[in-house]
């Protein structure tokens, strides 16, 4: 067991024995898939028309937002060029869907329906449209397991939204994240937003992580303990995106 913990033999064996687990995942997802196909089959024309209308409205909203962002991007590019700052925001990403099961023998897990065959690797960050979800910790042939940001085994380098104070945030194993020793002389308020700093060259810079909900002074008054609520939970949306290597 000690050897396995150090060398990760378990994961290597699991990667090569996917055929044992894949049928179970298929069986568990079968009722959901059947019900979704049946729902799609019996959807009325009016429902589809309504949905189409909603999506068209959404496209118009997004295109307006996109026009504004194009202008900001051009300005940003110009400023980066004049100040000689390297651009670290160009990244590839791939879409995936969260599938069942959500538990494995008492452990909460997040499974996504893309794996090594789709180019996913261990360590790649996973996000949804609200913020950071976690990181891939196991990649099988056709599915991958994600470690959520609230897990005790999760650590991410972060900065404040305004771009100051490089710190390390870790999950507390209970729905929140925490910074155990934040210097007391640095300014922090309830509601301050943290995002990825990108200094680890693993996470792209600027992905929202969470906001401070509680500040507790430590015993020696030199540090504060920050409790951070994540912007998103893994189950908020079934669709996620996995960041791949930089362009």
């Amino acid at each position: 067991m000690g050897l396995d913990h150090r060398k990760g033999i378990h994961n290597k064996i699991k990667e090569n024995s996917n055929f044992l687990v894949t049928p179970i995942i298929y069986i568990l997802n079968l009722p959901k898939n059947i019900s979704e196909s049946l729902t799609d089959l019996f959807k009325s024309k009016s429902q589809l028309f309504k949905k189409n209308q909603e999506l068209e409205d959404k496209i118009i909203e997004l295109s307006i937002e996109n026009q504004r962002l194009i202008l900001i991007q051009a300005e940003n590019k110009q400023l980066r060029k004049s100040m000689k700052i390297s651009n670290s925001l160009d990244i590839n990403s791939i879409g995936a869907e969260i599938v069942l099961p959500r538990v494995n023998n008492g452990r909460e897990i997040i499974l996504i329906n893309k794996g090594r065959n789709d180019g996913l690797k261990i360590g790649q960050p996973v996000i949804n449209n609200l913020g950071l979800i976690g990181q891939i910790i196991f990649s099988g042939k056709s599915f991958s397991e994600v470690n959520p940001i609230t897990s005790k085994k999760y650590i991410v380098p972060a900065i404040f939204e305004k771009g100051t104070d490089n710190i390390i945030i870790r999950g507390n194993g209970d729905k929140y994240l925490e910074v155990t020793m934040f210097p007391a002389h640095r300014e922090v308020n309830i509601g301050s937003v943290f995002m990825t700093s990108g200094i680890d060259s693993l996470y792209p810079k600027g992905i929202k992580i969470g906001q401070v909900i509680k500040i507790t002074p430590q015993v020696n008054n030199q540090f504060n303990h920050l409790l951070i609520a994540p912007f998103t939970t893994p189950m908020a949306y079934s669709q996620v995106r996995v960041f791949q290597d930089k362009k």
Partner: peptide
């Protein structure tokens, strides 16, 4: 094997399962 991967209400929470 199937039961260990099904999230039943009330007993499906992490730690109680």
């Amino acid at each position: 094997l199937l039961l260990s991967r099904i999230n039943f209400p009330l007993i499906g929470t992490d730690g109680i399962m």
